[in-house]
Amino acid sequence: MLTKKQIQLLEFIQGRMARDGVPPSFDEMKLALDLRSKSGIHRLVTALEERGFIRRLPHRARALEIVRLPDALSKGSDSRGGEMRPRALDSDKAAQPTLPPAAPLVEAAAIELPVMGRIAAGVPIEAISEVSHHIAVPGSMLTSREHHYALEVRGDSMIEAGINDGDVVVIREQDFADNGEIIVALVDGHEATLKRYRRKNGLVALEAANPAYETRLLPEHMVRVQGRLVGLIRSY
């Protein structure tokens, strides 16, 4: 039996992973559940782990994965009636829509995606246009079988978003993005990089998730969105 706060946290993690492809930070969890300190989040995460709902992966930033969901979430309904949902957050502190109901954790057939090469999570590298090989990804990661591809990550500029050197990111091909989304950006027609996207007053900010890297501010015409992060695959 989970407590109200444990269910709220599990729902917030599930919603954020469905939206961004990576789990939220402890600070984001703290704000979403309106707690005063991260120690409360640590206790909730530990309790969920002990009960077999989530798993923490060692030696990785933000390394959480959901193992299973309680019936109340997997059915997309709240059996506790009247329970408050956690506040969804982004770095602009703008109001977000209510998180969508969590989908049941069911086995989905693996789908082969083309791996288009390597993407820089650091200094941009040359744009990638050729398939190097294919990789099987869970069908549950994709909204459809089309318009998705994968890239191998090189660099550490997105480690605080849970994206490490050597990971494979799953990208939905699209030419637009909302502020705060992690995207593949084509810079000046020849450099490809994986960064968080923000647009304001005719400029585009490509933000790293590592304080060692500076945000790049570029005119809008120099940045083309090539796709949005929807999933991540990690090998050990």
Score class of each variant (00 low, 15 high):
Q96M: 15
P138C: 01
V137S: 05
A102Q: 12
P97T: 01
L113W: 10
M141L: 15
A127I: 09
F176Y: 13
G139L: 04
M158F: 03
R118W: 04
H133W: 13
V187K: 04
D178Y: 13
S129P: 01
V153I: 11
R145H: 13
R172M: 10
I159H: 02
V187L: 07
T143L: 14
H134E: 12
M158L: 02
A102K: 12
S132P: 04
V131T: 15
M158H: 04
D188H: 13
F176P: 00
G122H: 00
A94W: 13
V137Q: 03
I163P: 01
H190L: 04
D175F: 14
E126R: 13
P114R: 06
F176V: 12
D165R: 09
L99I: 12
R172G: 07
H148R: 03
A192S: 13
V169I: 15
V106Q: 08
Y149N: 07
A161M: 04
A121K: 00
A110S: 10
E112D: 07
E152V: 13
H133T: 15
I163E: 02
V170I: 15
I182C: 11
V137W: 05
D156L: 05
P97M: 02
A102W: 10
A108P: 00
A150R: 05
P104F: 00
Q96F: 06
S129T: 12
L186V: 07
A102V: 14
I159T: 08
A110M: 14
M141N: 05
I119D: 11
P104A: 00
A109Q: 10
Q96G: 01
D165T: 11
L186M: 13
Q174R: 15
E160D: 11
V106W: 01
S132N: 12
I119K: 08
S157F: 00
A177H: 03
